[in-house]
Computed example of a mutant assay.
Amino acid sequence: MKRNRISIKDISKALGLSNTTISFILNGKAEEMRISAQVAERVLAYVKEVGYTPNYLARGLVTGKTNTIGFIVENIGNPFFSQIASLIEEQAYNNGYKIIYSSTNGQTEKAVELIRMFRDRGVDGYIICPTEGLEDEIKQLREENRPVVLFDRYLPKIDSHYIGINNENAMYEACRHLANKGKKHIALITTDSQQTQMLSRLEGYKKLIKERNLNEYILYIPYRERKERLLSDFEEFLKKNPMIDSVCFATNYLAVGGLEVMRHRKIKIPTKISVLAFDDNEALRLFQPAITAVEQPLEDMAKLIIDRLLVDLKLGKVTDKTFHKELSAQLILRDSTEKA
């Protein structure tokens, strides 16, 4: 049998108290409004007994706040996003906010729909890993005084808060490590995406190759067809370039697929080809041999993201001066490059 939702009006009628008194108690303002402890305890005991849950949307219409944050990423199942989501959720909860998650799968149309859905639900702020072509939506959110923080990547045409890492330097240092190990034919496996973090990683690779006067070996996996094309394209790339002695994967999902191909072809790592990847995760740590990886400072990023958002939420408006911060990443050395 379906249970009807209990409202504040129902509670006030059952206990013989005003709606206002019930509301103050449920919002933790009993002492501030000089409501006796006995009355507050009575209300809270009854609320627990009947299983009352607040209607956050209705509350938001009254207070202008729902204490919720919309969190939009490319794929919440990706270890990078799931790890940082967990850290952000904990810090948001400690500050009185709940997180609502969603994934765009890299689709601009879906990202637009999600932002509009969150707006309709009255979320107080947005944490977004943007897709390409999302400029108009982010601009509109800021014009509506809705706090937004972008992370992992940014939109060059939009002035907005952004937290990420120095992707160019991180990739440069990773490739420099390979070059210092004596590698002469370093390949980069990336996508054709125009996302800023991918372009910066590409520039870091090219900078090292030019500096050491080496040949470029770049495989661009079509971003929209990455699941269908990665395995076949990478296998063909290895066949055409047998001189490759090391490979840098620009993302962890490219690394997982690429390692599958290398295992199928019985390529010995690192004897034949050294391997490193962006965004350390459990799969890379457990692979045999363990894979050298670029580790992003997730805890520091999460704290900066939520702290920056809270500033605007507490002010109740979007600040004119935007905050841009790029942190340093760390190269975690493992057997895939160290035993060659």
Rank of each mutant, 00 (worst) to 15 (best):
R3V: 07
D10K: 09
L17T: 03
L17S: 14
T21E: 04
F24V: 07
I25Y: 04
N27L: 08
E31H: 08
R34A: 05
R34K: 15
R34V: 04
I35V: 07
S36A: 11
S36D: 01
S36K: 11
Q38V: 13
V39R: 10
R42L: 06
V43D: 05
L44Y: 04
L44C: 09
A45L: 08
A45R: 14
V47I: 03
E49G: 06
P54G: 11
Y56M: 14
R59K: 13
L61A: 05
T68S: 10
G70L: 08
N75S: 11
I76A: 02
I76V: 12
G77M: 10
P79L: 02
P79R: 03
P79S: 00
S86R: 01
E90A: 12
Q91E: 13
Y93L: 12
G96P: 03
Y97E: 05
I100H: 06
I100W: 06
S102K: 03
S103A: 08
Q107D: 15
I115R: 13
I115N: 09
M117K: 10
R119V: 03
D120V: 07
G122Y: 02
V123L: 10
G125A: 11
Y126E: 02
Y126A: 08
G133W: 11
E137W: 03
L141Y: 04
P147E: 00
V148E: 00
L150P: 07
R153H: 07
Y154P: 02
K157S: 15
S160L: 06
N166V: 00
N166A: 14
N166L: 10
N167Y: 04
N167D: 15
A170T: 07
M171R: 01
E173N: 13
A174I: 14
C175N: 09
L178H: 09
N180I: 12
G182F: 00
A187E: 14
Q195N: 10
T196V: 02
E203F: 01
Y205C: 01
I209D: 13
R212Y: 01
N213P: 03
L214Y: 11
Y217T: 05
I218C: 05
Y220A: 04
I221L: 00
I221G: 02
R226L: 09
E228A: 13
R229W: 03
R229H: 09
D233N: 14
F234R: 04
F234M: 12
L238I: 01
V247R: 00
T251F: 03
N252I: 03
H264V: 10
R265E: 14
K266D: 14
I267R: 05
K268Q: 14
D279M: 02
E282G: 02
A283T: 11
I291L: 09
A293T: 10
E299R: 09
D300E: 15
D300C: 03
D300P: 06
A302L: 00
I305E: 04
I306E: 00
I306T: 14
D307T: 13
R308L: 01
L309C: 04
D312M: 04
L315T: 08
K317Q: 15
V318E: 09
V318H: 08
D320V: 06
K321Q: 12
K321D: 10
F323S: 14
K325M: 11
L333W: 13
D335H: 15
D335M: 13
D335G: 09
T337G: 11
E338Q: 15
A340P: 05
